[in-house]
C-alpha cells in the first residue's frame, strides 16, 4: 500500500470515531421525550402528506441511465488526460472517435426529446 494514504486513514478513523462518540453521548446524556409530533417525518416544517414512497415517473429512470452512460464516458477521459501529451495526435484521434460515437447517442436523445422535462414523447 502507498504510504501516502496513512493520513487519509487517520482522518477516516477520526471521523468515524467522532460520529460514534457523539451519537452515543447524546443517547447517554440527553433526555428523550418522544411525542408523535417529534417522530413525524420532517418535511421542512409542513405537515407531511402521505408516505414518501410514491411511484416515480419513468423519466427519472431515463435521466439516471443517461447519467451513468455519460459518467462512464467522463471516466475514460481521466486516464486519457494523464497521458495525453505522450499520445500526441494519435490520442486525439482515438478520443474524437470515442466521443464522436457517443455524440451520435447524445444527438439521438436530444432529438427524441428525452431531455425535455415538461412535455410529450416519453
Amino acid at each position: 500500500m502507498n504510504e501516502g494514504y496513512i493520513p487519509i486513514l487517520f482522518m477516516l478513523a477520526l471521523a468515524t470515531a467522532f460520529c460514534v462518540v457523539v451519537v452515543i453521548l447524546s443517547r447517554l446524556v440527553g433526555k428523550r421525550q418522544d411525542s408523535s409530533e417529534k417522530l413525524m417525518a420532517y418535511e421542512c416544517g409542513n405537515i407531511p402528506t402521505g408516505n414518501a414512497r410514491q411511484r416515480f415517473p419513468i423519466k427519472f429512470y431515463i435521466i439516471a441511465m443517461l447519467f451513468i452512460v455519460f459518467d462512464i464516458e467522463a471516466m475514460f477521459l481521466y486516464p486519457w488526460a494523464v497521458i495525453y501529451k505522450s499520445l500526441k495526435l494519435f490520442g486525439l484521434i482515438e478520443m474524437v472517435l470515442f466521443v464522436g460515437i457517443l455524440l451520435i447517442g447524445f444527438i439521438y436523445i436530444w432529438k427524441k426529446g428525452a431531455l425535455e422535462w415538461g412535455s410529450r414523447n416519453i
Binding site: 431515463i62 452512460v69 464516458e73 460515437i101 457517443l102 451520435i104 447517442g105 439521438y108 427524441k112 428525452a114
Partner: peptide, 9 residues
C-alpha cells in the same frame, strides 16, 4: 454505451 443509450430510451 451507445447501445445502452438507445436501449434505455
Amino acid at each position: 454505451l451507445l447501445a445502452a443509450i438507445v436501449g434505455a430510451l
